[in-house]
Amino acid sequence: MSNEIELIKDPGLPAHQHRRADEDPKFAQRAERQVAILFLISALGTILLIASYVFIPTDVFVFIPIFGENNLHQLLLGLGMAIALFFIGAGLIHWAKNLMPDEEVIAQRHEFRSPDEDREDFVKTVKAGAGAAGLGRRPLIKRTLGLALGLSGLTPLLLLRDLGPLPKADLTKTSWKAGTRLVTDPGDRPIKASDLEVGAVAQTLPEIAPGAHRALADVGKDAVLLIRLRPEDFNLDAERLSWTYDGIIAFSKICSHMGCAVALYEQQTKHLLCPCHQSTFDVTRAAKVIFGPAARPLPQLAITVDSEGYLVAQAPFNEPVGPSFWERSS
């Protein structure tokens, strides 16, 4: 078979090359000293750590070029710890590399596969065991066991039920009602229409009784952004236009995409941008989505003024605020 292709052969493990430290005791001694020095540096690191913990107050700052103005306590504590740990490691590795045997060892692998007769025996044992239990022959036991196991699996599901209440109308309702005043966030001061110049924004929440506590869950649904434009800038249908007051328009601040606070208003373009996922809404067209992943406009709150001239809601939001959910109808 002279045509047989001859492959390149494995020359085998190359002959071991001795290190200088193996042949010359001088080098071995040097390596030993180096390892010792590395361990000593580590010890110094721990001393630095202890010293900075005990002696450096936590309110001292130093200026270090490149790094800037830093807290000395935190910096030296950390550096001490880093040095202490790193150089133990460096010493160990240097020791292993230079002074421990470096002759490569060959170990043989064993085959994972069990011998055929073992595998057959195993199958036989399983079959015999199953047969002895008689599961196949006693379908009544099999089925009732299945039923029992399946039902018992419901227990944890059932017991987890009280993790929280049912949503009911919570996702669809906010605190806004007809006549609720818009107040500043923070500050809780009512706002008159004349308080806002053209181009002004205000972060608002519904008025609450004095001294009452505002739950974060309410803020998460009630937050509203007020924006004042020139009335002629609006491009709204008659109904939506009637929801504005003298150029002031109010939107839910909770993004219709994933619930971040959308309050990034660009006065010139009259666009609202959500900093989380960059959905962009056009304020002049009732917060229509013009860019990004949001699929719905921000809900608009109908506003007007009350007898004292303060801005109030005309009506509650006419749709749920915030991200979508299954039960949402539009």
Binding site: T184, R189, I191, D195, E197, G199, A202, Y265, Q267, Q268
Partner: peptide
């Protein structure tokens, strides 16, 4: 004044002290 993209923050909704 609300320069460029920035909106105006009126004195009534964000007082001078604020």
């Amino acid at each position: 004044t609300g320069p460029q993209s920035m909106p105006v923050f009126s004195d009534k909704t964000l007082t001078p002290e604020e």
